[in-house]
Design a binder for these strands. Structure first.
Lengths: 215, 215
DNA sequence: TAGATTGTTAATCGATTAACAATC
DNA sequence: TAGATTGTTAATCGATTAACAATC
């Protein structure tokens, strides 16, 4: 008896990280430039605006199944919509900021100004003066309530801006509580399981890297 | 007549960016763990501490000409010293922060706490309440004085934390003034000449990337 | 010596760039 | 049609990983 072929195409998840980053940038740029009234754009125009090659742009758009028009280029509306379908989660993600010192507060305010499907829904800190208050417009909870609140508020991404000496303990607590993605602003290396997606923003290392390459 | 061979080995500048980043991390980690009293470390121990492979560590150290000992591993003292000779500039670099809103101030304070050869020597802003005052311990100047002060203070690296609508103008001004490296915290794409080294920290894009990969 | 580790080359992997057929 | 652009495969480049000889 003939075997039935599996026809569903798993194009999700197969995007390379770099393509995902560029898709995020395409969308943001075009949302700003052509808010509502845009029409079409050629791959070489989009490439020029972001210092990429037209081939790279076409390849990225091909990967998400977006077809262009040989006369007019790519529909900006379709581009924004399909990027959204590809990289966003329909109902958005809840994000928490852990450690609301100066850096944590500044980042919270920065993200809240941006338009994105990522909602900062909670802050965590150890400071009694911050707990149970609003910090940068976000309710702040005791760091001990992480396991409890991560589940209750369905938080899947956290931004980590805590002092170096507590990074290890807090990161273990976060992972144990079910957090799936971490943006790490501390200079401490995190040891995380493979099902948690980590992105490091190591400011000191980045400045030293810049220093080396301008010598 | 025999041609005289050129014997100077140009190993500087040939390091890959990723190796430079790891070198910065090796040094910071070992400076913290073994402040002064450390001895030797094996490549596999260093690798384990940073979730790398031992081969990667040995390769990086080979690239900077550091030899290990087959019995004891690598001298921590030598490792820290040679990484310093490789990636630091002897007299250090002067760094400026451009745009001292909440994020700029927080980053300034963060870097000033870290030990590094990179000195934050100036801040720039448009706010009359900040100009000619100290912000986070750093003298703040009018943004119009960038060309003047960049030369006078010998600033080669800047951290960019200004609002989106002025990014383009200020980045042009910085490049025109002779800045050689930029750490860009804004979400705006910078168009820079090839002799300026750029590093982007696009928080929104990073969060969207994390969102995609945890779907 | 045997065992473990360094130093280095070769193979692989992932991402970018080049090339070009298809077609509006 | 001629010219320009899309869509896609092949080649290249850069970085990581595997393999292994040298040796303490």
């Amino acid at each position: 008896m003939a075997k039935i072929e599996k026809l569903t195409i798993p194009l999700q998840k197969k995007l390379p990280p770099r393509s995902v980053e560029r898709l995020s940038k395409y969308r943001r740029l075009l949302s700003m430039l052509y808010a509502g009234n845009g029409e079409f754009i050629f791959s070489h125009d989009l490439a020029r605006l972001l210092n990429l090659t037209p081939e790279q742009v076409r390849r990225d758009l091909m990967l998400i199944g977006l077809s262009g028009n040989r006369r007019k280029g790519y529909s900006i509306r379709a581009l924004i919509d399909i990027i959204g379908e590809t990289i966003d989660k329909e109902e958005g993600y809840n994000v928490a900021i852990v450690g609301v010192g100066n850096l944590g507060r500044a980042i919270t305010a920065f993200i809240r100004k941006a338009q994105t499907k990522l909602n900062i829904t909670a802050a965590f800190d150890v400071d009694a003066n911050k707990i149970n208050r609003e910090i940068a417009g976000v309710p702040c909870y005791d760091i001990l309530r992480i396991p409890d609140m991560v589940k209750k508020l369905n938080i899947s991404i956290v931004i980590l801006t805590v002092p170096s000496d507590v990074v290890k303990d807090i990161s273990d607590l976060l992972i144990h509580s079910g957090v799936k993605g971490i943006l790490n602003f501390t200079s401490v290396h995190l040891d995380i399981p493979s099902d948690v997606y980590l992105k490091d923003y190591d400011i000191i290392t980045s400045l030293e890297e810049i220093g080396f390459f301008i010598k």
